[in-house]
Design a protein around this nucleic acid. Structure first.
Length: 306
DNA sequence: AAAAGAGACAACCGCTTTAGA
DNA sequence: GTCTAAAGCGGTTGTCTCTTT
């Protein structure tokens, strides 16, 4: 006997999520909190399996997710972390508090891999092992160390920024919509929180009974009206998720979060402080004095981290 | 203008791990 | 200690759009 499927395959909808589905899911989670995913399809009337709901929330809908344009620092961090950790995207994502593993994985596969292939300075591809040690020998040791030092510094800064108490755990950074992917522009719906906010606006104007509503429906969104009412949009979203403004600065948002939103936010990423066990990587990133040790380790061809 | 190919990203699949009874 | 459901995770696939021919 095989494992039981997470849900009935029959009648389960697949494919891209619609704005309406997102609204239903976000609303339900706002009311009940994340978790108990199995109950969500039946409680909300969503024709999605619990797993799909969880993924949708985790990767796209939960607060605190930054989407679109990866910064240079983020790129370098990913490259370093991938060299050290391999394709452990979840582990890598834990060092980039606003990115999801799926996002990082996609970015790696579509951008960084190719970039590395075309950039000797970084290149690790074509090596039999994914070890950074092997890459080190592609350029002189001195050059490599200098480069690594620079990158370590940048990575440290990025990490430090990410987890500094002033901006950390509650930090939320919503990207302006114009920073989004071609998908966003192309399809008009890219699952961004801002888009959801827009939809929520429309939704809030057509009073609906969320809970226990199997035949839940949402009025269509008129793009023209949408544009006209952009300001109200943020209000609408605030009233649902408790945010002051979607594209506020990090501190603004963390200050203005309602208890409910804070709760959701706290859940949104593993708390770095809770990661009590300091890995080699963490030590490396935090401890100035160990920089060279790691360089040496990485340059030691006998050491295989993977 | 239409077709083909490539690129990018969202979502799914299935295995593994974890937590609770 | 065992079993089961839920969650985590990484690889893969599907779909959409843009670019090239």
């Amino acid at each position: 006997m095989g494992r039981q499927p997470c849900c009935e395959k029959v009648g389960v909808k697949k494919g891209p999520w619609t704005p309406e589905e997102d609204i239903i899911l976000v609303s339900y989670i706002q009311e009940h909190g994340p978790g108990n995913w199995r109950a969500i399809p039946t409680k909300t009337g969503l024709l999605r399996c619990s797993k799909s709901c969880r993924l949708r929330w985790t990767n796209y809908l939960r607060p605190g997710i930054k989407r679109g344009n990866f910064t240079e620092d983020e790129e370098k961090m990913i490259i370093h972390l991938q060299a050290l950790l391999g394709n452990r995207w979840a582990a890598i994502a834990s060092y980039l508090p606003q990115r999801t593993d799926n996002d990082i994985k996609n970015y790696w596969n579509t951008h960084l891999k190719k970039k590395l292939q075309g950039n000797e300075g970084y290149s690790r591809d074509g090596l039999s092992s994914s070890s950074a040690a092997a890459a080190a020998y592609q350029i002189s040791r001195g050059q490599w160390e200098m480069k690594l030092q620079t990158d370590i510094h940048m990575a440290k800064k990025a990490l430090s920024d990410a987890i500094s108490p002033a901006k950390s755990s509650g930090s939320v950074e919503f990207e302006p919509f114009n920073g989004h992917t071609s998908y966003a522009k192309q399809s008009g719906y890219a699952s961004s929180t801002e888009n959801i906010a827009k939809l929520l606006k429309g939704w809030m104007r057509s009073p609906l009974k969320m809970a226990d509503s199997a035949d839940f429906s949402v009025e269509g969104i008129d793009p023209v009206k949408e544009e006209k009412n952009n300001e109200e949009t943020a209000e609408g979203f605030q009233s649902v998720l408790g945010f002051e403004s979607l594209d506020s600065s990090i501190s603004d948002i963390s200050e203005s979060m309602s208890p409910e939103a804070s709760l959701l936010q706290d859940e949104s990423k593993p708390n770095l402080n809770a990661q009590t066990e300091l890995s080699l990587l963490e030590e490396w990133l935090f401890d100035e004095g160990k920089d060279y040790k790691l360089c040496d380790l990485a340059l030691d061809e006998n050491v295989n981290y993977f």
